[in-house]
Amino acid sequence: MRTRKRTGWRRIVNGVNIAGLISVLFIALPLYWMTIGSFETPANLASSPPQWFPVPGTTANYSTAFSQYHFWIFFRNSLIVTIIATALVLALGTLAGYALGRTPMRGKFSLLVVLLMISVFPEIAIIAPLYLLMREIGWLNSYQALILPYTAFNLPFAIWILRNYFLGIPKEMEETGRIDGAGPLRTMWSIVLPQALPGLFTAGIFCFTACWTEFLMALTFNAQTNFQTIPVGIATFGTQDITPFPTIFAASVVAVIPIGILVFIFRKFVISGLTSGAVKG
């Protein structure tokens, strides 16, 4: 095989790097457009050719979103629903994943396949029966109307991630724990969970993002402003005549921030979580 050592500028400018750059631009450009748009006046945003920098900039869109459009209510609702659902998913997913990964169980494999099928099940297929159910039990316009389905929908994937994580922890660690005198809960808490943290973060961030951005159920089950979440709230900005794009952009920027912070803090864990199980360490 002929190999050529790249030198000078050829080392930096090569096919792979350019492809990478194009991909990043492709993903980052809408975010950039949204961010600068949130600082523009409506007139400037619509100008042609488009402005690449908001001159003159304004923060009025942000205050409008919060004061005029009750954005803080949507934000609060999203936080409540997402945090509780994520916590439930992690708690249940840890227990189920551990059981499926470690304990001898009849029909374990079929159960895992069913879980995988559920996790790819299209939401829209069951939204109507779910709506009727929620109406029947009087849960429409409530937090639990979202928390419960979000937990159910995100649990299978979390169980899969966590189960694979638990499988990767040598059994001998738990056995050492047993000999050392740790009971099952202590073993779980002090020995297993600390090692499964990357898996917990990965599952947690996937679940958080899925709940934070979910639209269909939020729109269907909670029509009252008091229980609407961010995606639905932003969609109701504006009227028939005007769509306040800069304000929508501003709200969207605020909506993206929590996810950005989470991913930034836990990025190492998430990356190791996504690749774990691929190679038996």
């Binding site: 040598p170 001998e172 660690m173 056995e175 050492t176 600390p194 090692q195």
Partner: peptide, 8 residues
């Protein structure tokens, strides 16, 4: 144990 089973 063979693999030491140390808590990492």
């Amino acid at each position: 144990f063979q693999n030491y089973a140390l808590y990492p």
